[in-house]
């Protein structure tokens, strides 16, 4: 029975497409590669030139200003713990990756979210794509990234950007859709152009939701950055994976704990930024 079905060279076909893209869009990929590499390198070098204690102080200050004193204390304690575990450098690497990936994901994701809220056609195209993206296992993002960018930090960032982008798109669009009709009328009645309407009414009112999207993007970026350790993206992810492969549970757990600390700190800070109006009030 099975013999009747002809063998279709699916794999061959896809590889051909990938090769075609690789050769014909080589300049594009090279450009992306160098932009990402430079960005990560820059952030990383800034973070490594600054003394540890300065960074800890800055983080504590931000945490204190945006969130609560408790978060500031937690930040100080956990960052000190990371230093004492000897994981500062890979932590900085991971943070650089996460920051750059989040930045790119939001720079692309927020405009896409605005577009999604504005255009029904675009929404109907992107909605199923987002659905698929959010059901795919995170490992599967590594494959195309590796195919186009080989291994290392750049494909790690690319995979992270794609994996972490959906919440930015979704929550930006949701926030804009939830802006009340009355607020739009206020803008229009005073003669706002559609650009003014977007910048002075819709985006500010959608900001809590947009910030929530960024928050979730950061969280997804953390989980992906660990997985990107598989393709040599460096940082805590690589340590965890190497530790697991060599049954060095101690180092794996310590690195894992560091990831958790970072995630908690960034989560608390960005969550509070989302409630920016309450902060202003008090």
């Amino acid at each position: 029975m099975i013999d009747i079905i002809p063998k279709i060279p699916v794999g061959r076909f896809l590889v051909d497409i990938i090769n075609f893209l690789r050769t014909n869009l080589a300049i594009v990929f090279a450009a992306i590669r160098s932009i990402i590499a430079t960005a990560v390198e820059t952030v990383n070098s800034i973070l490594t030139t600054l003394p540890e204690f300065v960074i800890i102080a800055i983080v504590a200050l931000i945490a204190w200003k945006t969130a609560k004193i408790k978060v500031a204390i937690f930040s100080v304690v956990s960052l000190l713990l990371i230093i004492s575990m000897g994981l500062w450098r890979p932590t900085v690497e991971t943070v650089s990756l996460v920051l750059v990936a989040t930045l790119i994901a939001t720079i692309i994701g927020i405009p896409l979210g605005i577009l999604k809220a504005r255009s029904k056609t675009f929404a109907s195209i992107i909605e199923p794509i987002l659905d698929v993206m959010q059901t795919l296992p995170s490992l599967s993002y590594l494959i195309p990234a590796v195919l186009f960018f080989r291994i290392g930090i750049v494909p790690g960032v690319v995979a992270t950007v794609i994996f972490a982008m959906p919440p930015s798109i979704r929550l930006t669009s949701l926030g804009l859709e939830q802006v009340s009709k009355e607020m739009i009328e206020v803008g229009k009645s005073f003669g706002a152009t559609s650009k003014q309407l977007l910048l002075k009414i819709e985006v500010p009112l959608a900001l809590p939701s947009i910030m929530m999207g960024i928050n979730q993007t950061i969280m997804l970026a953390f989980s992906m950055v660990v997985i990107a350790g598989f393709i040599g993206a460096g940082g805590l992810g690589e340590i965890i994976i190497a530790g697991l492969q060599r049954y060095n549970l101690v180092i794996a757990i310590e690195a894992g704990l560091s990831v958790v600390f970072l995630a908690i700190i960034l989560d608390r800070i960005t969550k509070r930024l989302g409630q920016i109006y309450d902060v202003k009030k008090s």
């Binding site: 009355e182 009328e185 206020v186 229009k188």
Partner: peptide, 28 residues
Amino acid sequence: LRRKKFGMVFQRFGLLPHRTILQNVIFG
């Protein structure tokens, strides 16, 4: 026309929650 000719007042006030009173008043 909307900028120069009309001023509108809304039933549920329609103030922008992210702006101060002064910033709301000078919105137009």
